[in-house]
Amino acid sequence: MEHVETFDYAIRKDVRNTTIVREVDERRQRELWTSLAIGAVLVVVVMFDAWQHFELIRQGYAIEALQKARAEEDEASRHLRLEAATLRAPQRIERIAATRLGMSVPKAADTIVLERVLPAEPPARSVVASR
């Protein structure tokens, strides 16, 4: 059986290239930093956009909660106003005055009118405070 062996011969030559320094390609360096800067800006933009998006949603929840609380407070205020009006009802006040406080309707002799004070008429068209 024929067997062909191949030998590779190499001449080793000690090349001392440690002192060789690759020349800095300033153009490419600038391009690199520019790319990095652009990338960073893009990342920041994307991050900012994402932050805005999630912040919007978070604030949405907060606004919702506040609006709900406001609506509840408004309604509580209306209920309290109704209760106040109920407690101010003349028949209730008279009943308490007569039964609990022992008061009675004054007779004519018990009353002295100093002066009849008529409330001033409001202006023809006016802005009023509303609750």
């Binding site: 409001p122 023809a124 068209r125 006016s126 802005v127 009023v128 405070a129 509303s130």
Partner: peptide, 11 residues
């Protein structure tokens, strides 16, 4: 006596 609409009282 008057109508109050949007905070404006109109007799």
């Amino acid at each position: 006596r008057a109508v109050v609409r949007d905070g404006v009282r109109t007799p």
